[in-house]
Design a protein around this nucleic acid. Structure first.
Lengths: 193, 193
DNA sequence: GGATTGACCAATTGACTCATTTGGTCATTT
DNA sequence: AAATGACCAAATGAGTCAATTGGTCAATCC
């Protein structure tokens, strides 16, 4: 692991990140990654077993960024629901705006690449895992009612995805504040008069 | 509109319903519909402008059945939330179990037929429309808090679809009673302690 | 003589082919 | 020892063409 080798690995990862984000999984060729990284194609295979492993490395980096973003959004002195909303919204915003996920989503829709599907599922799992832990904590501290954290994380995430992504497919997008308000109405307070 | 003509139209509709449900939109040929209906192919075109219009007729029939099912599920002496759950659940069950929607969903996933997409969107719109009206009513009678009926219908439907269809992609399916309980917990009462 | 039919047609499809491209290897170079 | 890119088998995709399809309409039927 001499410095030059580390630099080469970094250059490969950097080039791969750009090409995967620009062309998706399938249309990214190892040749192009090598060219953009200024290395021979064979060099890539000294650091990564194959294309899929290179891709997974990129995705794992991205998932780490998502988790960091969520952790950053949590402020100890704010209420659980405020923190949950802010963490979730920031994760979804990152996912929504990041070129890599935009491209992968499009690729999954258009040609159904298995690797794109798996990668997006992994992102969802990471978000769900983070939420589940956060909800478990709140349950123990009696900040919320008793509930299955797995189902609760699932329901909350899907409510948000509905409001952030699916609602915009056919209506005016909802602002961050509107979403927070709806979250409060539907999940926190309940509809009962 | 002599009886024989009506019978012919009925036979065409009946044959078309079976073939669309068995083969989906694209793989259903007008030749096959004509053969199964025991009419000449040209006869179909005396009743329906083209394949798409024939298909829409079938779908409109199906949407009527969904609305009837929902209306049937509503009992005047039950509470709003009980009725809403029962109506929604019965509509989703019909949609889930009916061969026609199963096939169209599969066709949309596998080859992305535009007509299948539109047809499934129309079903969703019908369900949303029904719910919206039902929610508006409840709002006027002050059975629930003030809320935008459009967003509320959208949120409730998506919550149900998440619990009925998406949860079981990766977990044990939830029973009707569990779903009712989760609906009560998340949407009716709220998570706040 | 209006309703019904199926042979017919233009347009679309999809099986097949084959030249090009791709992921991955490894002998050669640095 | 690390890096390279020529090389190879496998996958892809553009092009072709015969078969199929949605739709028409002149002939047929009742």
């Amino acid at each position: 692991m001499i410095p030059v080798a580390i630099d080469r690995k970094k250059m490969i990862l950097s080039a791969a990140e750009r090409t995967f984000a620009s062309f998706g999984y399938k249309a990214t060729t190892m040749d192009l990654v090598a060219r953009l990284a200024n290395v021979g194609k064979g060099t890539i295979y000294t650091f990564f077993k194959n294309k899929e492993e290179l891709f997974n490395e990129i995705m794992n980096q991205f998932i780490k960024r998502i988790k960091a973003t969520a952790t950053n959004a949590i402020h100890d002195d704010d209420h659980f629901f405020v923190n949950l909303h802010r963490a979730l919204y920031s994760m979804l915003e990152l996912r929504k705006e990041h070129q890599l996920t935009i491209k992968l989503t499009q690729e999954l829709r258009e040609i159904g690449t298995a690797q794109a599907k798996q990668a997006l599922a992994n992102i969802e799992d990471a978000i769900l895992g983070f939420m589940e832990e956060f909800i478990s904590h709140a349950e123990q501290k009696q900040e919320i009612k008793l509930c299955d954290p797995k189902v609760t994380a699932f329901v909350i995430l899907h409510l948000y995805i509905s409001l952030v992504f699916e609602w915009e497919q056919r209506h005016q997008p909802l602002s961050k504040e509107e979403i927070a308000h709806l979250f409060e109405l539907y999940l926190v307070q309940g509809l009962k008069k």
